[in-house]
Design a protein around this nucleic acid. Structure first.
Length: 278
DNA sequence: CTCAGTGTTCAGTG
DNA sequence: TCACTGAACACTGA
């Protein structure tokens, strides 16, 4: 599910059920991939009886600030999500068991029970997500390796222009480089380049100041708009490439009738519009 | 049966 | 150090 807007949606959901609550019970099974070697016993010991003081996000990472370390960090990978018993999205979650048994959802990796009766589950279908424990999350990997978060700390235009001009990298992979900017993934990179009229194979250092400024503003615009849509992608503006990028047949086109081309960059499918992007 | 996918990391190369 | 590529991870759904 997750680039920055979807992760922020998850953060808000988690905050809404857990803020100032005590974690009364933790249910999880051993999973040495998702829990990165942390045993169920250690997770339970770290979380049970602790109070949630805040739920933070940087880039695509979420972490709970507890009243006592270590603090849990969550990364969704490509297929992770938070759910509560009242999540709308649960209706679309298939479950192999009898009907009306969609709680906890399929692929649940950790299930938290709070003192106010609320519950929160993190699912992870493909197991590319991670749940970690850190004593000082912001000053340890992976959080301290992240670049600036474009929702919380977007660079000033001048700084951003200079940061781009200092790089020889291809612009699209650079936008997805989490140590440069934290939170942009495949579809947002394509969207902001399309809206900025910049060809995804351009070198960052080749952008004019005007292009770099426009790109910065589109990053801000796309992310803020997607965050406001709060998980409802059908609320994204109809002009966005997003709605049409997945159709990979040779006739796919934008809302204005411009052909959409698909190439591979940095191992990822890249949708772009040659008539618009230079 | 094959393959791509809203992600990340690591090894190998230049 | 920087930059790029490909493979690996893991598994569902088209």
């Amino acid at each position: 599910m997750p680039e920055l807007p979807a992760v922020e949606h998850g953060r808000r959901l988690a905050e809404s059920v857990s803020l100032n609550q005590v974690i009364e019970r933790v249910s999880c099974r051993r999973d040495d991939i998702v829990f990165e070697g942390v045993s169920p016993a250690r997770i339970r010991r770290a979380l049970t009886g602790k109070r949630v003081l805040a739920v933070h996000r940087k880039g695509k990472h979420i972490w709970f600030e507890l009243d006592q370390p270590p603090h849990p960090l969550f990364h969704f990978g490509m297929t992770g999500s938070f759910y509560t018993p009242r999540s709308e999205a649960l209706k679309f979650m298939p479950h192999p068991g009898p009907k009306d048994m969609n709680w906890p959802p399929r692929f649940a990796k950790i299930h938290l029970f709070f003192s106010n009766g609320n519950e929160l589950v993190m699912t992870n279908k493909r197991r590319l997500g991670r749940i970690r424990l850190r004593r000082d999350p912001e000053n340890e990997p992976p959080l301290n390796q992240l670049g600036f978060d474009p929702l919380l700390n977007l660079q000033a235009p001048k700084e951003f222009v200079h940061a781009l001009q200092a790089r020889n990298a291809v612009i699209k992979p650079l936008l997805m480089n989490q140590s440069f900017i934290a939170g942009i993934g495949n579809w947002i990179a394509d969207e902001v380049l399309y809206q900025s009229k910049i060809k995804p194979t351009r070198r960052a250092g080749s952008l004019s100041e005007a292009e770099a400024r426009l790109l910065r503003n589109k990053i801000k615009h796309v992310i803020q708009t997607a965050v406001k849509a709060d998980g409802r992608k059908d609320h994204f503006p109809r002009t966005w490439l997003y709605h049409r990028r997945w159709n990979k047949n040779s006739h796919s086109q934008t809302i204005n009738g411009k052909p959409i081309k698909h190439i591979t960059l940095a191992g990822r499918t890249t949708a772009w519009v040659p008539d618009v992007q230079r």
